[in-house]
């Protein structure tokens, strides 16, 4: 899939922003000792990330003037749901801030709503990709769970960086470390299964229903593209034909794992004072991870173009 910068930035930024928001709301719920000014400051960062991400995602719309229409398909479209939740998130967050000085049920309710909405958005974002049967590299549990996890994880790191007050707090740090480790395992397992996922995609025989034994459907002849029928690129080849240079893949994956997960864990455990570096490394690593997430994902229409799925 074409790695569009706007969407890469959007998912990483809003993911971290939403994660941070969730952390903040959870802190409220947990009754942590909070300086409202500091809270709002950090919340600002979260809001900016989310907003920048959302705005950036509209950049790739070819026709943004109709964007207000995108709430109509709440019933079936994760993209629409994401939009609806995102729109609801702002009043909910404002309400939470408004309620913050107080204590009690209303504030907790507001914080819970924010947690739920932010989590829902993270989930929607994940599902936007994970629901596509056409892209087997997305249509799996790693993607479904990965995006929310990476959001919480990077949001947690941001929280610690922006609000060092919580750094000594072993519980927050420990949770972030655990999230990073789970994230690492998940991404690693994803890379391990990358080839298998591609191979499990419909074959060119299945895509064209050619060279199959009648009855059993077993492949009995090789099918190959002879001519793709267009002279230059098309929308389809531009959108789905992206190839990561093979020589780069391994390096990039290692970058994603090292900067996105391993280095932050190491820093958190042994050099917590470099928390800023940990957070930056994680976001940088996630940008690489996200770039690969798009660039390496293979759409089944490639079969019709005689392109590999792995």
């Amino acid at each position: 899939m074409k790695p569009a910068i706007s969407v890469i930035f959007f998912t990483v930024a809003s993911g971290a922003g939403l994660g941070l928001l969730i952390w903040l709301a959870l802190l409220l719920l947990a009754g942590a000792p909070i300086d409202p000014r500091a809270f709002v400051r950090v919340l600002w960062v979260a809001a900016c990330l989310v907003t920048a991400g959302l705005l950036s995602s509209t950049l790739h719309l070819a026709n943004p003037k109709h964007a207000w229409q995108s709430f109509r398909r709440f019933g079936s479209s994760w993209l629409s749901r994401e939009g609806v939740f995102a729109v609801l998130l702002y009043p909910a967050t404002l309400f939470m801030v408004w309620q913050m000085p107080g204590t009690g049920l209303i504030r907790d309710l507001a914080a819970t709503v924010v947690v739920l909405l932010a989590a829902a958005i993270l989930l929607c974002t994940a599902m936007i990709y994970a629901c596509l049967k056409t892209v087997p590299h997305w249509n799996n549990w790693q993607v479904r769970n990965g995006m929310p996890l990476f959001g919480l994880m990077s949001g947690g790191l941001l929280l610690l960086a922006l609000w060092p007050l919580f750094l000594p707090d072993r519980s927050v740090r420990a949770i972030v470390v655990v999230l990073l480790l789970v994230g690492l395992a998940l991404k690693y397992s994803y890379y391990l299964s990358y080839r298998r996922i591609g191979e499990s995609a419909p074959t060119i025989n299945e895509a064209l229903k050619l060279g199959l034994e009648p009855g059993t459907g077993k492949i009995n002849a090789r099918v190959r593209l002879l001519d793709v029928g267009h002279a230059h690129g098309t929308f389809l080849t531009r959108e789905f034909g992206y190839e990561v240079p093979r020589s780069r893949v391994l390096g990039l994956r290692l970058c994603a794992l090292a900067f996105g997960f391993i280095l932050p864990v190491a820093l958190l455990l042994w050099l917590p004072q470099l928390i800023w570096l940990a957070a930056a490394s994680c976001l940088g690593g996630l940008l690489v991870e996200r770039w690969l997430f798009f660039a390496e994902a293979r759409h089944v229409v490639r079969r019709y173009h005689g392109m590999p799925m792995t």
């Binding site: 002849a221 090789r222 593209l225 001519d227 029928g229």
Partner: peptide
């Protein structure tokens, strides 16, 4: 769009 393939009986 029309694409062209070969079914190769090896």
């Amino acid at each position: 769009r029309i694409r062209h393939y070969e079914v190769v009986d090896d």
